[in-house]
Measured scan of single mutants.
Amino acid sequence: HNGKLCKLKGIAPLQLGKCNITGWLLGNPECDSLLPARSWSYIVETPNSENGACYPGDLIDYEELREQLSSVSSLERFEIFPKESSWPNHTFNGVTVSCSHRGKSSFYRNLLWLTKKGDSYPKLTNSYVNNKGKEVLVLWGVHHPSSSDEQQSLYSNGNAYVSVASSNYNRRFTPEIAARPKVRDQHGRMNYYWTLLEPGDTIIFEATGNLIAPWYAFALSRGFESGIITSNASMHECNTKCQTPQGAINSNLPFQNIHPVTIGECPKYVRSTKLRMVTGLRNIPSIQYRGLFGAIAGFIEGGWTGMIDGWYGYHHQNEQGSGYAADQKSTQNAINGITNKVNSVIEKMNTQFTAVGKEFNNLEKRMENLNKKVDDGFLDIWTYNAELLVLLENERTLDFHDLNVKNLYEKVKSQLKNNAKEIGNGCFEFYHKCDNECMESVRNGTYDYPKYSEESKLNREKIDGVKLESMGVYQILAIYSTVASSLVLLVSLGAISFWMCSNGSLQCRICI
């Protein structure tokens, strides 16, 4: 991952900044910058967002509201009850120091605090018919004063009620008058409520006091790749198909172990950190130390980045220098085999997901714990399936590479015959000098055995068991695999060879 928040398929997220979902939807004055928000790819909250409900109280069923919003990608904020005409018999300019803005008392931008007009609070009834052709999110509140005197001074009615009804919602609220500790300079409380109004449905408000009335509502448009994440990451000019709280993932790998919460087309989250597919040879310690064997393909974004291909070729060293050249036929066979294998694994496992966190309130801790156990169970199954699949494929890959290298080895052996000696570690020792032209003939299969047989015969008789390297004779190393990324691999195959001279070296080696 890149540690950044990015656009998702070209669409920017909605960053709530210092506000949370509650503050944004109710219209906390400190969240005025969010009022123009219309569309987004996903919503970003920060872990310690401080601006929620400015007048103390709870947004009821907040967790369910977050779940609903996680599939919303755009909205239209509109005046559901026009301020100047909807409440002619009531005062609608209630403000509070708890919702101060720029040093002055204020109130929510989407709600109206209705109080008595003169000395009376006549029963009010108002309704709205949803003609938007889509779901409408309606929010309101109920004020709970701290004393009967406060109730009387604001609403005149000691036994007030609030009723809200639609086809799918029907509740009646009565204020709970009680002494409470002071929070944000208030002994009173406000509880906030919401409902989704279906197209064509009607919502009716009736009250004799204590109503925090809707002013603006939201017509919602769903987008199934949307979601809500909690993150401290910063926004950058970048684009992605998959976003996590820790950063964007741009990967076609089937798995990731970065974060379980994802938005967009994302690899499946697994616990494993070692889900690797081999593309090189079986481990040979001396070669492995030099980083030549054991190439791997990573299938977990965050564990290993991208696929690494092994390729086969020849390396030689003689009086004229040293050089490398790919054996294109065996390399292409290996590439085709690995590509098919990788595609097979991805096809089997690479279903892209959006995974969002589930919200539970403080009273639902047991449910949250149960949900976590269920999620953990599914996660263990996914991890096991992934590891088992790759384990089985790896064994076949190792066998496949062994065969490829063996074929190259036999190709060289059949040409050199007794003009060189096998020394048991995949290397041959020449009994004759071999210049670049000679080396090329070994690589392309045109090695002239009779041409060098007499010199080889004489050297075999002279050496008589002495280690060949100390006599200045020449080696050919018969097994060799270097490691390159897919891009470098293609470039390498396009070149005939490249040279690395070893000044004054008397050794001649050709490596497979």
Rank of each mutant, 00 (worst) to 15 (best):
S231Y: 04
N232L: 09
A233R: 15
C238M: 02
C238A: 04
N239M: 10
K241C: 01
C242T: 06
T244H: 09
A248P: 04
A248M: 02
I249P: 01
I249Q: 01
S251Y: 11
N257Y: 07
H259R: 01
C266E: 04
V270G: 02
R271G: 05
G280C: 08
N283V: 02
S286P: 14
Y289G: 00
F293H: 07
I296C: 10
I296P: 00
G298N: 10
G298K: 04
I300M: 13
E301P: 02
T305M: 00
G310D: 06
G313E: 08
G313D: 09
Q317P: 00
S322D: 09
A325C: 13
A326W: 01
Q332T: 08
N336E: 06
G337F: 10
I338R: 02
I338Q: 03
T339D: 07
N340M: 14
K341A: 04
A355Y: 11
V356K: 02
G357E: 05
F360P: 05
L363F: 14
K365Q: 07
D375E: 14
D376W: 08
G377R: 04
L379S: 08
W382A: 06
Y384T: 06
Y384W: 10
A386H: 07
L392N: 08
N394D: 07
N394G: 12
T397D: 14
L398H: 04
H401I: 10
N407Q: 13
Y409L: 04
S414W: 10
Q415P: 01
K417V: 03
N418I: 03
K421V: 08
E422N: 13
I423A: 08
G426L: 14
C427Q: 01
F428W: 01
H432C: 13
C434L: 09
E440P: 02
G445Q: 07
Y447F: 11
Y447K: 07
K451A: 11
Y452K: 09
E455M: 09
L458A: 13
S470E: 04
Y474R: 11
I476K: 03
V483W: 06
A484T: 15
S485G: 12
L487S: 11
V491Q: 00
N503W: 10
R509Q: 15
I510L: 14
